[in-house]
Write a protein that binds this DNA or RNA. Structure first.
Lengths: 118, 118
DNA sequence: CTTAATTGTTACTTAAAAGTACCTACATTA
DNA sequence: TAATGTAGGTACTTTTAAGTAACAATTAAG
């Protein structure tokens, strides 16, 4: 069994890595289909996306709902347990924003506009 | 120049990775010498530790103070800017704790006792 | 004059994360 | 009957992160 030196490592195991926080930040705003998430995250590949989604699902923070349709329709949303991360996600987003403002004179240099794409 | 799709990615660039949050969680409690941090983080190597500390220093969240002694004495502490992460770090730690409690029947199975070592 | 103590560096190697390219399924539509 | 749209799987490769092991600097103590 995995051992942690301090409890915060357990949190990092759930939301650590390059993509999970980003995914959760999108899902905190809205329930999303796979394709929407892909459009919201231009950098991610199909493989990475499903892989990360599976792990988040296994950890109980997101819910995967499959509608029996063709072509398939799958929606991802936060579980109640996932919502317990809201405080963390909100402050992370806020800190990121002000960090950009602090670090770069005008944020248009570092922020790609993709929010409106979906 | 680096581009982000959403601002939270900027935060992840500063505190992402396997070690930075852990280091910051220790420094939020106390100013620490290099050797103390090493003892608090049994898994980390000298190389990783200094590397992560340098990056945190470059990002302005920690301060490195060198005392002119032999053998050398170096102390690390949070900067004012680093303290702006306190909310995030606190909630991450708290979430990790309750996640362990939720996930494992008794946390002694997953938590190594090292807090008292320093 | 050798050893210990503390912090740090460097070249090299290994392990983990991420990316690429191609494949499946299946009703609908043209 | 061939193409479309959506979600996902897989084998393989590349890239990045992390780990290993050896070395440097300095001065006090033995």
């Amino acid at each position: 069994m995995k051992k942690y030196n301090i409890p915060v490592e357990a949190a990092l195991e759930v939301i650590g890595g390059k993509w999970k926080v980003v995914i959760l930040c999108h899902l905190i705003k809205d329930k999303r289909r796979t394709g929407e998430l892909k459009r919201l995250m231009p950098g991610i590949t199909q493989k990475m996306l499903t892989q990360q989604l599976r792990e988040l699902e296994d950890d109980g923070v997101i819910l995967r709902e499959v509608y029996n349709q063709v072509p398939p329709r799958v929606e991802y949303s936060l579980t109640d347990y996932g919502w317990s991360l809201k405080g963390i996600l909100d402050s992370l987003c806020a800190w990121g924003e002000q960090h950009i403002e602090k670090t770069y004179p005008n944020k248009d240099d570092v922020l790609v506009q993709t929010e409106e794409l979906v």
